[in-house]
Write a protein that binds this DNA or RNA. Sequence first.
DNA 1: TCTCGAGGCGCG
DNA 2: AAAGCGCGCCTCGAGA
Length: 568
Amino acid sequence: MPRYAVLATHSTSQPESEAGAASAVLQLFNDDEPAGPPLLVFEGQLPAVVADLEAHSPRWVMDSTAHWYPKLLAAGSVIERVWDLSLCRMILRNSASALATPYVNALRSTPPEPAGAPAHALPPPRVSEHQGQLFAEPKDAAGSLESVLAEFADQRAAVPDTLPGRRLRLLLAAESAGALIAAEMGANGVPWDADVHHAQLESELGPRTPEGTRPPKMEELAAELRTLLNSPALNPDSQQELLRALHRAGIEATSTRQWELEELKHPVITPLLRYKKLSRLASTNGYAWVDAWITGGRFRPEYVVGGVVTGRWASRGGGALQIPHTIRDAARAEDGHVLVVADAAQLEPRILAVLARDAKLADAARGRDLYQGIADLGFGGDRAHAKIAMLGAMYGATTGESGRLLPQLARTFPDAVALVEAAARTGEAGGSVSSFLGRGSPEPSADWKRSQRADSAEAQRAADAAARSRGRFTRNFVVQSTAAEWALCWLGELRRALNAAKAEGTDLGQMVMFLHDEVMLHVPEQHAQRAAELIEASARAAAELLFGSVPVDFPVGIAIVKSYADAK
DNA sequence: TCTCGAGGCGCG
DNA sequence: AAAGCGCGCCTCGAGA
């Protein structure tokens, strides 16, 4: 009964045999004792070996779930639990809850990873306590057995047996589980009806034209713009040309942003805004997008766990997290199925209520409509103002209506406002803040630190602006990162529940999409209600797992629909 | 010719 | 209605 199954790349100088190269090496552990020698696994045999071992529910240990798991999934092998070294490494690097072991210190002394780089393509630093140095160029991104074993031990040793340590351990487990879910969702994909999408494009843009040419309805609008602006050669895709043409027509715009154009009164504004809308649709989610991303009736994006500093997922390719509402009608359940779409209602202010132990805000958060609750307690029932004030407090708004409403919010919910203000002050001073489970905000960059040593009035203004900007980041970080943890726990609990149901013989369907605080399941029609119940139970379990017993509700809105467009 | 930043806008 | 946070993708155009 192996407790851990460590998966690594088999590195050898031996020439490939007739059977092919050994692609992987497996080391099983009973508790902390190796259960026999490492096991070489040849190309193509790995999924079967994994599936066999999975009967014992080991925790798999691997450098990168994103590297290994898609191959296993493609062969039908599902993993229950994993410890993802790459993801844990990123968390430990920034976490104030991690012990300052040589391993953690070595991580912290490496230069920050380039922002936005693909998580599994980052060069994984190899740390050896014996040599006390980092190897910048690993032989293989999937890791050798020696390095995987060493780093696993290093990572476990970096988590103390304290309350912050136990929370950190939960975070590492949840992040790793997220890697499994992300790979599974990516493999499942959102059921996508290309015909519906094409019909939508045709009605908006007109019939498909050759690549590199303007769709008919955009061409018509472009002609109209040229006439209205008296600019026969205008290319409306060029901001510079467009701005010049607007100025020539006496329109005093400083940019071509939608919101600025909307303020202006001129016959050209309406067709121009229409052109920009269509242009966006055509270029980002047009015919080419369907060609590139819809295969076998599914949209299969790549989710990037750990791709956002706050712990949210990012995505790569297809703009999976930015699917516009206008084309969501193309996300359609297959025959005999429905989409069960659930979203956590006003997640971030509810999280703030817990973080700040703000009893008043917790009162407001009891029930479905938190903003109405805030309005009733502090804004004379004015929901719109309550919402603007709350969002402004979490984002750091200083101007406009949102800024003006902040004092009113602070009077009613002093603890909640004090918490985000304190996070802002910490960030402005160059400090770091943390999520509830211990995901730390990144250190300020070297440029930022340099900016704070201003030697002139002008530089001082820039320094202050940079400080305020970082304050807004850390202010939001505490809320967004903890919300991401709640969502991760929600997904983890839901996955466990779905797998348990499956083990008992009921296939409730697949998780097919995740969007920060929203999850979509593709479910056999007859099980829709049961799936909805599991989603709600998972939300309650997530809050309990994360926070224990707290007086804040985390309601989820659930829609059972055939088309994603009908989800809200 | 290619790369890369800015501007803009889609999502939460 | 936009503003304050976090992202990814597209186009243009400047510069190597």
